[in-house]
Every structure is written in structure tokens, then in C-alpha cells.
Measured scan of single mutants.
Amino acid sequence: SFQYVPVQLQGGAPWGFTLKGGLEHCEPLTVSKIEDGGKAALSQKMRTGDELVNINGTPLYGSRQEALILIKGSFRILKLIVRRRN
């Protein structure tokens, strides 16, 4: 089963996490790295392996390109929903 975790990061880029996968690579869009001391790490809500399913209220369909555009369009606040295996 899965758990959906809301994450809100503040203060602008860099957000402190790296993505891998996506439709382009025929795999889920997941968090591959969280930078020590970065905003994602400080939130204590994101983990490597989390799947990104929503950015700023926009549902994602797995495209890494789409996710990067939405993330780049976030100035002060980035709201994410990640899906994690229980």
C-alpha cells in the first residue's frame, strides 16, 4: 500500500533534491537524492525513493520534463505531494 505525503518547501530554489526516471525512461518519477542541509532535507518530509505525483496542485503523469518546468516556475513556495510505499 502507499502513503501520500504533502511537502511544502519555502524560500526559493535550489530546493535541494534531484529527480530520476519519468515516462521518458519508462519508470516512475522519483527522488534520487536529497542534499544535506538543503530545503528538502530541512523539511524532514521527503525521502529518496519517493515518487512525485503532484507539484503546486498540478497532477503529474510521470514526465520528468513537465515536472522540471513546474519546479522551475516555483518562486518562493514549492508544494509537492509524494507517494511512498508503506
Rank of each mutant, 00 (worst) to 15 (best):
L78G: 02
L78C: 05
Q3P: 05
A41D: 11
T58M: 13
Q8A: 07
Q44A: 10
I69D: 15
I34L: 10
F17D: 07
T30G: 03
V7M: 15
A40F: 03
V7L: 10
A13T: 07
K33T: 13
G57L: 06
R83S: 04
K72E: 13
E24K: 09
E66H: 12
R76Y: 09
L78P: 04
Y61T: 15
Q44R: 11
L23Q: 15
G21T: 00
E66R: 10
F2Q: 02
W15I: 11
S74H: 06
G37D: 09
L70D: 02
E27R: 10
G21Y: 01
K79N: 15
L9M: 10
V7G: 00
A41I: 03
T18Q: 12
F2D: 09
I77L: 12
L29Q: 01
F75I: 12
E51W: 03
S43C: 07
G11C: 06
R84P: 05
L68A: 13
H25D: 15
Q3S: 11
L70I: 07
L9Q: 11
N56V: 06
L80S: 03
E35T: 12
G57T: 08
E24L: 06
V7S: 00
V31W: 01
P28T: 07
Q10V: 14
K33G: 12
Q8S: 10
L9T: 00
G49P: 00
I55L: 03
E35H: 10
L60W: 01
F75R: 15
W15E: 00
G12W: 02
A67V: 01
P59R: 10
P59G: 07
L29G: 01
G12Q: 07
L68I: 10
S74Y: 00
F17V: 00
Q10E: 14
K33Q: 14
D50R: 01
T18K: 12
N86A: 09
L78T: 04
L70K: 11
E51I: 04
R76D: 15
Q65Y: 09
T58C: 09
Q8I: 15
G62T: 04
A13N: 08
K45Y: 07
T48D: 14
G73R: 14
R83V: 05
I81M: 11
Q8L: 13
F2R: 04
F75D: 13
Y4N: 06
A41F: 08
G11D: 05
F75L: 12
T18E: 13
L80Y: 09
R85T: 10
G16E: 04
E27S: 10
G57W: 00
A13K: 12
V5I: 15
L80E: 00
F2Y: 15
S43E: 07
L70M: 12
K20T: 12
P59I: 14
Q8V: 13
D50H: 05
F2T: 09
S74L: 04
K45W: 03
T18R: 10
D50G: 03
T48A: 12
L80F: 07
E35M: 11
L23G: 13
L60T: 12
F17M: 00
H25N: 14
G73E: 12
T30E: 11
S43D: 10
L29V: 08
W15G: 06
Y4E: 06
G37E: 08
A13H: 11
S74I: 05
L70V: 06
G37N: 12
R83H: 00
L23V: 14
P28R: 04
Y4K: 06
N56R: 01
F2C: 06
W15T: 00
Q10L: 13
L52I: 14
K79M: 07
G12S: 05
R47N: 07
G16Q: 08
N54D: 09
S1K: 14
S63R: 09
Q10W: 06
Y4C: 04
G37P: 01
P28A: 09
I55T: 01
Y4R: 01
N86Q: 15
G62H: 07
A13Q: 09
R84M: 00
K45L: 13
S43F: 00
G16N: 05
V31A: 05
F2K: 03
